[in-house]
């Protein structure tokens, strides 16, 4: 009431920042603008495509991670699930080079489903806290990669061309994996916003006890999100092996934190109940752009990790300040 009116532009910016997705979008635009001023080639189609290729896998897994985080859980085992599924699929493909690539995709998803189901089982029926359960399977699944492969790798020349093209082929204008990521985003968006099961995920994350009292099968919802996380990892694993044309014992090592980072930067609340698909996609996009920009403006690749960490910190701090201010506005 007595508060002085903000200048128009500032008022507009504030309104944008308050909407989480718009805020990240704005940040991305500013970043892209700055980088393009420095290196105009940044906006070239080739480079943009490169960014999309780089974030497709991240986006797929981050979408699943988001559903897990909305239920107030976390899945740290994603990197090991990817590593294990990638190794197994690559071996099978190597043994059967004639196998249709699509079958490999299916196989990967089924393997991932089994791994995700195991996570789901111990979290729901075993009542092991998600952080602990997936911390455990993180090292179990990674150990199985070594056990499976005996420490050996699968190299590019051992894989058939059809398999390598699975991710990078462009029968439909854009590379397959970019289309797959887009498809995944659409499916998850529809699922979260327009199906009861999707709404149940929010309900369980928002108030678990009340969800149970409302007859929402809490255990089944939890099981489902970990299962889906496994399926997404299986899909990501096949794409990973195909894109990088190899399967190694350390495939995707440390990837779990990137997926959490994409979600958190995209506005998913670590305490559950909040998160949107556009937000996560923008979060993944931002991570990808930063990585690409650092390379393109010739900053040593050794800076990348530090920049990524800094970005997460900035995103979290800015979000916190914005939330605090919004809270104050609601009160007054």
């Amino acid at each position: 009431m007595t508060e002085p009116r903000r200048p128009k532009l500032a008022g507009f910016l504030w309104a944008v920042v308050r909407l989480r997705e718009a805020g990240i979008g704005l940040f991305i635009i500013i970043l892209v603008g700055l980088v393009t001023l420095r290196v105009p080639a940044f906006l070239s189609p080739d480079n943009l495509l490169d960014i999309l290729l780089n974030i497709s896998i991240l986006a797929i897994v981050a979408l699943a991670q988001t559903m897990v985080i909305i239920t107030h859980g976390i899945d740290l085992s994603v990197s090991s699930m990817i590593g294990l599924a990638a190794m197994m699929v690559a071996f099978v493909v190597k043994q059967n080079p004639e196998m249709p690539a699509l079958l490999a995709l299916l196989l990967g998803m089924m393997l991932g489903a089994a791994l995700g189901a195991f996570n789901g089982l111990i979290i729901t029926y075993g009542k092991v806290p998600p952080l602990i359960a997936t911390l455990g399977t993180l090292s179990i699944y990674r150990g199985l990669v070594f056990f499976y492969s005996g420490g050996t790798w699968i190299n590019s020349f051992e894989l058939p061309k059809s398999f390598k093209l699975l991710s990078k082929g462009t029968p439909l204008l854009l590379p397959n994996m970019v289309l797959l990521a887009l498809l995944a985003a659409l499916i998850v968006y529809y699922f979260l916003n327009h199906t009861r099961a999707g709404r149940d995920i929010y309900a369980v994350g928002s108030n678990p006890e009340a969800a149970q009292m409302s007859g929402i099968p809490k255990q089944r919802v939890l099981f489902l999100v970990y299962l889906l996380s496994g399926v997404a990892c299986g899909l990501a694993a096949v794409l990973w092996a195909s894109r990088f044309e190899s399967a190694q014992t350390n495939t995707a090592l440390g990837f779990e934190l990137q997926t959490v980072a994409a979600s958190v930067v995209g506005g998913v609340s670590i305490s559950g109940g909040v998160g949107t698909v556009p937000g996560v996609i923008l979060g993944a996009l931002l991570l990808g752009i930063i990585q690409n920009a650092l390379t393109i403006v010739r900053i040593s690749p050794f800076w990348q990790l530090a920049a990524q960490g800094l970005l997460i910190l900035i995103a979290v701090i800015v979000d916190h300040l914005v939330q605090q201010r919004a809270q104050r506005e609601v009160q007054s």
Binding site: R199, Y202, A203, S206, N207, A210, S214, G215, G273, V274
Partner: peptide, 20 residues
């Protein structure tokens, strides 16, 4: 109270049995 803080008023009424 057993509402869902992150869901809106209308959905809170029908949570778990939204009309489809």
């Amino acid at each position: 109270l057993s509402l869902f803080p992150d869901l809106d008023v209308a959905e809170n009424i029908f949570v778990g049995r939204q009309p489809t």
